[in-house]
Simulated scan of single mutants.
Amino acid sequence: MSILDLSFSEAGEGPPLVILHGLFGNKRNWGAISKVLSKTYRVLSVDLRNHGESPWDEEMTYPAMAGDIAGLIEKQIGGPARVIGHSMGGKASMILALEQPDLVEKLVVADIPPAPRDSGLMAYVTAMQELDVAGMTRRSEAEEALAPAIPERMIRTFLAQNLAPAEGGGLTWKINLDVIEKAMPNIEGFPDIDSDHAFEKPSLHLTGANSTHVLPRHHAEIERLFPNSEIEAIPDAGHWLHAEQPALFLEAVESFLS
């Protein structure tokens, strides 16, 4: 398993805090949140492998992602960090905490359980792959072309954030769609973890009250693997709870981390 040198942006001074995005996301998605948190913390917002400005690799498993994050923490921080992970980044952060607890001081997991889940996101991958982005010049063209497959405007705008100008004209995806397509069973899954590897330090598991990602049946598994955990729902929020209710999300996170 190769350890990749991840791209990240940094802001603020203070105790180190690492932020990990979800599938199809990148470090820029967390700009508003990291700006607030950087008043108290040294915030490192990270691009996970096959996303953003980080390297691409054929392996797309949670142990591989956790290995990348561990390498970044060891290289850039040199000791334990507070970690926030959303969705796919939340699963990667949980594996990091379970496998290398000495690198995680406190853990915040946003709207994802330590369990497999059929996400339905392969439809997004297919829709993105089928676009002729090389013939486009603006993200808005891609958003419009995605509309028949993805009616939700917010999701189309989010996905189009992964487009960038290509050398020689047109646009190109800054996300490794072919590897993500092959790795979707890994991304939707979660490794089997023995109770002996439970993360004993504090963890906060935030859910969107309107989201179906974390259900009451998942609470026992969260408590088994994270015995020192709090589970809290953000009202009037779905899966993208940090974007839908940023003030409430920040209030919960800042209260827990301090």
Rank of each mutant, 00 (worst) to 15 (best):
A32C: 10
A32I: 12
A32K: 13
A32S: 13
K35C: 12
K35W: 12
K35L: 13
V36Y: 08
V36M: 11
L37G: 03
S38A: 15
S38C: 11
S38W: 11
K39M: 15
T40N: 14
Y41Q: 06
Y41D: 07
Y41N: 07
Y41K: 01
R42F: 07
V43F: 05
V43A: 06
V43E: 04
L44F: 11
L44N: 06
S45D: 09
S45A: 15
S45Y: 05
S45V: 12
V46M: 03
V46F: 00
D47N: 05
D47C: 03
D47H: 09
L48A: 11
L48H: 01
L48R: 02
L48Y: 01
R49E: 02
R49D: 00
R49K: 08
R49V: 02
N50S: 09
N50T: 08
N50L: 08
H51N: 01
H51K: 02
H51C: 03
H51L: 01
H51V: 01
G52E: 00
G52T: 00
G52C: 01
E53P: 10
E53H: 12
E53I: 08
S54C: 07
S54R: 02
P55R: 07
P55L: 09
W56D: 15
W56K: 15
D57N: 13
E58T: 15
E58D: 15
E58Q: 15
E58G: 13
E58P: 11
E59I: 12
E59A: 13
E59S: 12
M60Q: 11
M60A: 12
M60D: 02
M60V: 05
T61L: 07
T61R: 11
T61A: 09
T61D: 06
T61E: 03
Y62H: 01
Y62S: 00
Y62L: 00
P63C: 04
P63Q: 08
A64D: 03
A64G: 10
A66V: 09
G67K: 04
G67L: 04
I69S: 04
I69F: 04
I69M: 06
I69Y: 03
I69T: 08
A70F: 09
G71N: 07
G71Y: 06
G71W: 05
G71E: 00
G71F: 04
L72V: 08
I73Q: 01
I73T: 05
E74C: 11
E74K: 13
E74Y: 10
K75E: 14
K75G: 10
K75I: 09
K75P: 07
Q76C: 12
I77D: 04
I77M: 03
G78M: 06
G79I: 08
G79T: 09
